[in-house]
Design a protein around this nucleic acid. Sequence first.
DNA 1: CTGTTAGCGCGTTCAC
DNA 2: GTGAACGCGCTAACAG
Lengths: 340, 340
Amino acid sequence: MAAVTIRDVARQAGVGIATVSRVLNDSPLVSEDTRQRVQTAIAALDYSPSSVARRLSGGRSMAIAVIAPFFTRRSYVERLQGIEHVLSAGGYDLILYNVETVARRDECLRALPRGERLDGLLILSLGPDDAEVERLQQIGVPTVLIDTYHDTLPTVTVDDEAGARAAVEHLIALGHRRIAYVGEQLDDNPFHFRPIDDRYRGYRAALAAADLPFVPEYHRQGKYGWREARRMAHDLLALAAPPTAVFAYSDTMAFGALEAAQQCHITVPDQLSVIGFDDVEIAQHFRLTTIRQPLYETGARGAELLLELLDSDVSRPAPHIVLPTELVARHTTAPPAANP
Amino acid sequence: MAAVTIRDVARQAGVGIATVSRVLNDSPLVSEDTRQRVQTAIAALDYSPSSVARRLSGGRSMAIAVIAPFFTRRSYVERLQGIEHVLSAGGYDLILYNVETVARRDECLRALPRGERLDGLLILSLGPDDAEVERLQQIGVPTVLIDTYHDTLPTVTVDDEAGARAAVEHLIALGHRRIAYVGEQLDDNPFHFRPIDDRYRGYRAALAAADLPFVPEYHRQGKYGWREARRMAHDLLALAAPPTAVFAYSDTMAFGALEAAQQCHITVPDQLSVIGFDDVEIAQHFRLTTIRQPLYETGARGAELLLELLDSDVSRPAPHIVLPTELVARHTTAPPAANP
DNA sequence: CTGTTAGCGCGTTCAC
DNA sequence: GTGAACGCGCTAACAG
């Protein structure tokens, strides 16, 4: 019953199979008369073309694949939401590939664009290397990168370095001198997440610009998550000369720092300032001062860009959209205690 | 380079095309010798089979659609993760449809199974009515319902009523008598979310079983979200005889209650006990006592069930899996203050 | 064990 | 304008 094909429609309408195809693809070379007949037949048979067959034969599949690492993390969910909105508005299906291991990452990047015939590809955060990019272009899958960068591919990113700098500058302007950074591991970055490097650089840059020394002790690295961040913050707080402020790689990590402070009976922001990055939804709940990055918009813009590329296959140079970050001052930052 | 097909591999290995196919599908009817040759050729050519072609000839699209309302909410994300894991392990694509309005809900339920060729359908939380269920069955799309129930369709749910009852019983066992319920609106439930009714019933049932009167004043309803919950909790706390404990519909709403208490300088759990529902990830962070429901497992089981149904198209009666909930006692509940 | 052949459902030249 | 025939890459019968 679900097996009504284009042939059935053709027979029903008393036309050839190609004519049905033309009608389906809005070809102008069909007389209004037969177009009507075909459409009636389609409706009568409740026919819908097989996207699989369509893909195989080279037509549009109306499907976009989204490759996302750790899509459960709040920041990805928000970007995904942006993507979903514009894709569904454009009538495209969103095929989600979650990536949690390097193996799966390679598998997706390699086998997927070749094996699946999709209209486009959206890659979140995963930094593809040159070889992979070249493969994508050879295969001819329109691709847009979100939250990661490559010269030859269209990208939508945020200026992480500037954002991080703004965060630290905010702390410095408040009067802080001993500023710690709780970040993700720089050396162990299998997915090539750019923000890991960029935010660290921003931290260093702000310090340098203010002639503040970089204290290696104040730079902590660990895995993602508030538990790890809490541990690192505990270490920081136990230092002989503890920092008066901490800049966290992400809001999630900032929450960990907040909790560590609470456990040590250190009040925020009086005795310790904490600033995060992302401005995920619950950040307001914690009244967290943070660097807001437009997560939803990043996803939406990326998807829009891809859809534009699909229509105008003019291969102009790859656009690189950079969205601004913004300091959102709430209640976890303040001038340092009088005499530390 | 970009177009290496099974034929290229066959030529390279000096074998027939079918043999390559056999090797790809782990058929035992290939000599170890040729198998080796083929695999060498595959590696040499960096070949990967086109899943699209495979689908077309196999008659299956290897795609499962997931219809989820508000997939950005934590509880849905966790269920989605479970679904994603088993689907990708089974080689299926996950096509995601986000539903935020009733209109889109109807659109998905109607147009989707018709338009796309999917092997199966997973519906989260959205309670389809009889007519919709009938359509699905007519079209012949294997469907599994998660977090919602229908007689004739396979379902994976949690006993929300029992969970809610356990929450309130926990409070009662602690000595509480004035127990409030902060829930979602009972009368305005366009998506037909079952837990909204069930948890309320559990609350009432626990009260009744302990011969505690139901105090309408203690029953608050509002929209989803911690802001709304915070507002409701504020109202509750301003009562002449405020409750000594509140059971929240979800962890998210519990967080709102927690914040309201904090704003009123009411300490938790000494002056007020708060219990939630779900046990989402951050609940631990808040040290929230809550009713844990196996979100990930619910999604995973639903997906597994669907995959099983796909293989064995024996139309046995629809199975109804009910997963247990569990009280997770942390630090937001305690006996009520001595003399309220 | 292995090679050949016929579809899977649709898009796309081509002749008519 | 329209229809028949071929091909997309692969799997599943068949033969050998």
